[in-house]
Amino acid sequence: MRVGSIPTGRGRYLAYARGLARELWALREADALKISHFLHLRAEVCSETLEEEMAEFGPEDRVGIVSLMDHTPGQRQFRDITKLADYMKGKHALSDAEFDAHVAQLKALREANGDRHEAAAVREAARYGAVLASHDDTTEAQVETSKGYGVAMAEFPTTAEAAEASHARGIAVIMGAPNLIRGGSHSGNVAAGELAEAGLLDILSSDYVPSALLLAAVKLGQDWGCMARGLATVTAAPAKAVGLQDRGEIAPGKRADLIRFDLRGGAPALRAVWSRGNRVA
């Protein structure tokens, strides 16, 4: 969930993370959840309220990951501002003038708050005991900065250069399952398949499409000629990256989180799900 909001301007958006976390933990206390849940805070440094929002969380919230995000137009994910223009004009019906004002606002926010917010996000992640992830690293210099912060995972590096630099520094590379299935990035950045072919892809993320995880992992298994290796991108590899030593593989003493599926026309069809050894679906 995103922390760091912009409550002013035409493209404004408000805080929601603390309230959603309270609802999630209430469901956990009521034993209403079928699987294990942790929090992943996506810290937007190009914002107005990041420090206040992150201060509302603590170690008791089981924050597993904090991602350092910077969606300032003209760099990282939005190096091609036309892609951002298509998105914002389509979603928010912005005119050309309104979009230009939105871009100017974001750049001003980054200039005023970005460095302070980035430092605060790193500091708060340490307070939570969370694993740090970078987001949309594009250059080797950005990867080097991430390494200096103690980043363990690189979410969606936008270039092969950044993915190679991450691997060289022992940073696990995450790409979106929809990117792999689609055959490319919706933002025009490096394709997950290209990184997989180069041996630079470690972990798959659902990227807002949970059903894509199994399909993409199976596709990788088929492409790599090793189904176990493909499935590990959504099981053992992410568990290891975030320090969850009680899951991620089928072994004595582990949680026994399991799925059963078969292949129909090369695509997986889910048949059963177990959590902690109990069948839940």
Rank of each mutant, 00 (worst) to 15 (best):
G221P: 06
H102K: 13
R271E: 13
L84T: 05
Q77V: 11
A85K: 15
A30N: 09
A125E: 04
D115F: 11
G4N: 02
A26R: 15
V280C: 02
A119W: 05
E140D: 09
D100W: 02
N179Y: 05
G199C: 12
A237E: 12
A15M: 10
N113V: 00
V280D: 00
T82K: 14
L201F: 01
L213E: 11
H92Y: 15
H102E: 15
R12K: 12
G277D: 04
E111G: 10
A162Q: 08
M1R: 12
A93Y: 13
S211R: 11
L213P: 09
P268H: 00
V190K: 06
A133H: 03
K147G: 15
F57C: 13
V3W: 10
A119L: 12
H135V: 04
E194W: 10
R264M: 03
G19P: 10
Y208P: 01
K34L: 14
H71S: 00
D207L: 02
G176M: 04
A85Y: 13
G148H: 06
V122K: 01
V273P: 00
D115E: 15
H117V: 13
A108M: 08
T49C: 10
A216V: 04
A32D: 03
H71L: 02
R12V: 01
S205P: 01
E140F: 00
T139D: 10
A217N: 07
G114M: 09
A239Q: 06
D223L: 15
P157K: 03
Q77W: 09
A32I: 00
A15C: 12
H40V: 01
I171R: 08
L24Y: 06
A93Q: 14
M153D: 01
T138D: 15
D246I: 02
E197G: 12
V45T: 14
I250H: 03
S185T: 03
P210K: 10
L180S: 08
H71T: 04
A241D: 01
A152H: 07
R279F: 03
L84H: 08
R182G: 04
I6F: 03
E23M: 13
G266R: 02
G114A: 06
A112V: 03
A272Q: 04
I250N: 04
V234P: 01
K240R: 14
V63H: 09
A160Q: 13
R76N: 12
G230P: 04
F78Q: 04
E53D: 10
A30Y: 03
V3A: 13
Y208S: 05
P73F: 10
F156N: 02
S166M: 09
L50N: 06
R42A: 11
F261L: 05
E48Y: 11
L109I: 05
G90H: 06
E48T: 06
I259M: 13
P59Q: 05
E111P: 02
R28K: 14
Y149R: 14
I6D: 00
T233W: 03
T158C: 01
L33R: 08
P210R: 11
L14M: 11
A108S: 12
R10W: 05
R247G: 00
E29N: 09
S95H: 02
A251P: 08
A165M: 03
T82L: 14
R110M: 13
R182D: 02
